[in-house]
Nucleic acid binder design. Structure first.
Length: 629
DNA sequence: CAGATCACGCACG
DNA sequence: AACGTACGTGATCGGA
């Protein structure tokens, strides 16, 4: 055993040097954690740089533990995915992690919970479920307290604890000069590891107090923590892919892109790379098309698909259409290639971030499963495992419903209550249509689409100018439409005004679940620059949109948690595979599908008492089935 | 010459 | 610019 004390931290950092040290550490930690009721822990893996880390594959180098503010323990685990100890010690280590998993009387505190629990899963093959309240994530706690700043452990330590965790990072980098931890001096890594679990331990109490003071504890306990554990399962099990289909499509698109490239070169008269904006501009010039483009970026005129679509409308331009086709195929093939690269044994697993947005939405990374192209082309590859179905649920127009809920707008509430068509109703009012709601869809489908744009645009805080551009009318007409909209839905207008004045006064907005979006310094900004300043109005738009977007997504996520709890209570086998904001996909064993669907309905459609949020529910074999009409 | 960074474009709700 | 995201590609630039 070696002692690497840190006077700045005021703590002892103890490092095991052999198997018997490990065994005695385990005894001490069990004893200490049982007494204090809390255990912070942290793993180091072989990748130091955040963007290269993969907890399902990287080597698990070491772990550290801290159960009071005096001492932290660290011991090594593996090197190149091989255990460093004999079987007896390895078994004790595994048993120790099982003990941690099973002991619900001890609070386990981790910075970035899902990451470390994936490593635990690799070691013992188990993970905690949604209803286990003995796990805490300081990263998510910090995020709820301050969505505007970094939630990195070192930054938090300096912000909240006045500790310089960065010094260890500097030491590690100094010794290593590279980002691969496995080649580093072990004692430096251990010190670093100890510092992490020590800081996590200390941070927990500080953040807990702050959360309670800020009324965020409920949101954390009822939503964030269960969601973390639920998504842990989602990420561990992954989504099954039809690999043969994807490989076939990859080939098909490879040929198609080459062919399109050839055809375009022939028209233009020289070879060029259609993926390059710079080369594309030259091509446009040589075809005398550049003069018709009125959209510009920092480096020249735009060649994006909207520009191309405009050009295409002006005349019969084979080249432009081929380029549009090329861009679309190029994009799809990027998705296909990405999936094939990242899948393992036919399973694709994403990483959901709970702190990836300022609105409480999740984000999805490596790969992003929340932005797959609509339609069956790519989504057809996402299939259920043998003996299972996919149950796909979509909340219908949840953001507009949330707006009507806050606004208590009678007109809008009535439309939703009676199952009316909100877009048609808006179209009638804005465009002075003289027909019934039902007739709009048939008689004026294009106006209904525009009204849909208005409905969503209002939630984003759209201006007359942008509306004018969007639906191609004069700014005066757009102004007229907007005032008609607000005349029809008076409550929405009031809600927007109320939200604006309240965010200026308080410098934050808060939704019904207590989630906050903070705008520090807004009051002074308004004072010095006025309400029409671009920065100010952008904050005000964001504030209103936050209220709607955050509430909608909190409802969706709470429904997921309720459904999963119902699944466990009823002993069903159903696992969430992916969440795309207002869409959830579950994998359900055939025999339980019917019961599952009724649980899903009952747990989703009234998350807030008295406020209905209906869902559209489908039973599918693949994600693409949704689009097969 | 590998790697970081920017600009662009585009996929989703 | 009408809110919130992730990411692949090409071009460019400066340091090993």
């Amino acid at each position: 055993m070696r002692e690497l004390n840190d006077p700045d931290f005021g703590a002892r950092f103890l490092v095991a040097e052999n198997g018997s040290d490990v065994l005695s550490f385990i005894r001490l930690i069990k004893e200490g954690a049982s007494t204090s009721g809390i255990l912070a822990f942290d793993f180091e893996t072989n990748a130091l740089k955040e963007d290269r880390v993969n907890p399902l594959e990287d080597s698990i180098l070491s772990c550290s533990f801290c159960f009071d503010d005096k001492v932290a323990y660290a011991f090594r685990l593996q090197s190149k995915n091989k255990w460093l100890y004999d079987d007896n010690v390895v078994n004790c280590i595994k048993e120790f992690y099982e003990w941690i998993l099973n002991n619900k009387n001890i609070k386990k505190v981790i910075h970035n919970l899902k990451f470390d629990l994936k490593l635990v899963w690799r070691i013992v093959g188990k993970y905690p479920l949604v209803n286990d309240s003995s796990w805490e994530d300081t990263m998510i706690m910090a995020y709820l307290l301050d969505e505007n700043n970094s939630v990195g452990l070192k930054r938090l330590a300096s912000r909240y604890l006045n500790l310089d965790g960065f010094k260890y990072e500097r030491m590690v980098l100094e010794v290593g000069k590279i980002s691969n931890m496995s080649s580093l001096d072990w004692y430096i890594v251990s010190q670093y590891n100890c510092a992490d679990s020590f800081m996590t331990y200390k941070l927990y109490y500080v953040l807990l107090d702050k959360m309670k003071a800020d009324d965020l504890f409920d949101l954390y306990e009822k939503l964030c923590r269960p969601l973390l554990l639920l998504l842990l399962e989602t990420e561990i099990i992954g989504f099954k892919l039809d690999i043969d289909y994807l490989k076939q499509k990859r080939m098909w698109y490879r040929d198609k892109l080459i062919e399109l490239e050839r055809e375009m070169s022939k028209i233009v008269g020289f070879n060029f790379n259609p993926r390059s904006v710079k080369q594309l501009r030259k091509v446009f010039e040589s075809l005398s098309l550049s003069g018709k483009i009125d959209k510009f970026g920092k480096t020249g005129f735009s060649t994006d698909k909207n520009v191309l679509a405009k050009l295409s409308k002006q005349g019969d331009l084979v080249f432009v259409d081929k380029l549009l086709e090329f861009k679309k195929s190029q994009k799809i093939s990027e998705f296909i290639n990405g999936l094939l690269e990242k899948q393992r044994d036919g399973i694709i697993s994403t990483n959901f971030l709970l702190n990836g947005t300022v609105t409480g939405r999740l984000s999805s990374r490596e790969p992003n499963l929340q932005n797959l192209p609509r339609g069956a082309e790519v989504r057809r590859a996402f299939i259920s495992r043998d003996g299972c179905k996919l149950v796909i649920a979509d909340f219908e127009q949840i953001e507009l419903r949330v707006a009507s809920f806050y606004a208590k707008d009678k007109t809008m509430l009535d439309i939703f209550k009676s199952g009316g068509d909100i877009h048609s109703r808006t179209a009638i009012e804005c465009f002075k249509l003289n027909c019934s709601e039902k007739e709009v869809k048939e008689k004026y489908p294009d106006l209904r689409v525009k009204a849909k744009g208005v409905n969503f645009g209002i939630l984003y805080g759209l201006s007359p100018k942008s509306l004018a551009e969007y639906i191609n009318v004069s700014i005066d007409d757009a102004k007229d439409y907007i005032s008609r909209y607000f005349y029809l839905y008076t409550g929405i207008k009031d809600l927007i005004d109320k939200t604006r004045s309240s965010v200026i006064e308080n410098e934050y907005v808060e939704n019904i679940f207590g989630r906050k979006r903070r705008f520090l310094g807004l009051k002074n900004l308004v004072k010095s620059k006025g309400l029409n300043d671009e920065e100010v109005s952008s904050h005000l738009r964001e504030a209103f949109n936050f209220l709607i977007q955050s509430t909608a997504v909190d409802i969706c996520n709470l429904s997921i948690i309720n459904v999963k709890k119902g699944v466990l209570e009823n002993n069903l086998d159903a696992k969430l595979l992916v969440q795309v904001h207002d869409e959830q996909i579950w994998e359900v064993v055939n025999s339980g599908v019917e019961r599952f669907c009724s649980i899903l309905k009952s747990e989703s459609e009234e998350v807030i008492g008295g406020f209905k949020t209906p869902i559209d529910l489908r039973i599918c074999n693949s994600w693409g089935d949704k689009y097969a009409d």
